[in-house]
């Protein structure tokens, strides 16, 4: 896959909120990039601008020499096939079985009537079985999505993104509602799959230790602007303060107790 280039990307919502402020990034082929930053920093907006679920106000997105921002709807759909997306809270179609959720990743490839009658090509179906096997959901194909646990649902979400055979993976807070163990498992799975398939990936995440584990590069976003761009090792407490605001990043339990008593005293004064 060619390099993904964002140039002076800006998004202002009709409400007047400036979600992205002049963001420029180059993401070379095969790089896994973690996008960190506090809630409301514009991480989700950035990812959604790349496949134009959100229309950027100004600036350009290019995949190699293809200009994504200028595409008409037909070309855009073809471009979206090349970008798999994994969502916060899974975003599975709750009332459809696992298999149909996975196969919905092929919608950009099959015609309307084939998808209406659920007549997907054999290769798609065997690929779906392979992927379900790979993400650890063999035998679950007929369960309805709303009958699965959080971790299982996100695995279905991963399979749905991968069956598109994407070049680029857009991952939006994949572990936002998962417990710590499942979070690590899911992140490890995404990391492994990116490596296996040589995928470029942008991963929104607000769990900094988790980001450090798998990303080759970290971009810190604050109020819609890039405030850090570098290796995970470079995420010093100073940098984190710059991204997230004042906080004691190395605090332990004893510090915490002291912090709480301070809080009480402060409360008593007022």
């Amino acid at each position: 896959m060619p390099t993904l280039t964002l140039t002076n990307l800006t998004k202002r919502y009709p409400t007047g909120d400036l979600a992205l402020n002049d963001v420029s990034l180059d993401i070379p082929e095969g790089q896994v990039l973690a996008l960190i930053g506090p809630s409301g920093a514009g991480k989700s907006t950035l990812i959604r601008c790349v496949n134009r679920l959100v229309e950027p106000t100004s600036g350009a997105i290019a995949l190699g020499d293809l200009n994504v921002t200028q595409m008409g709807s037909r070309k855009l759909r073809r471009m979206r096939r090349r970008m798999g997306m994994i969502f916060q809270e899974y975003a599975l179609v709750e009332r459809l079985p696992v298999m149909e959720n996975v196969l919905s990743g092929r919608l950009g490839y099959v015609g309307f009537w084939a998808s209406w009658f659920r007549q997907f090509p054999r290769e798609d179906i065997s690929q779906a079985f392979n992927l379900l096997d790979r993400v650890g959901l063999a035998g679950m194909e007929d369960k309805r999505a709303d009958a699965l646990s959080g971790g299982q649902r996100q695995r279905v979400g991963i399979a749905r993104a991968l069956i598109q055979n994407p070049d680029l993976l857009l991952v939006d807070e994949p572990t936002a509602s998962l417990d710590p163990k499942t979070s690590r498992q899911i992140m490890r799975l995404i990391g492994e799959l990116c490596k296996e398939r040589g995928l470029t990936a942008i991963v929104n995440i607000h769990d900094v230790p988790l980001a450090r584990l798998f990303a080759e590069r970290v971009v810190g976003l604050k109020s819609g602007a890039v405030v850090y761009d570098g290796s995970p090792e470079g995420l010093t407490p100073d940098v984190l303060t710059q991204i997230y605001g004042e906080e004691d990043w190395n605090a332990t339990k004893e510090d915490g107790d002291k912090f709480l008593t301070q809080g009480e005293e402060a409360g008593g004064e007022s």
Partner: peptide
């Protein structure tokens, strides 16, 4: 809705 034939698993709605 899942069955097998000589080419592997088959899925229908």
């Amino acid at each position: 809705p899942v069955s097998r034939d000589s080419h592997g698993p088959v899925w229908r709605q």
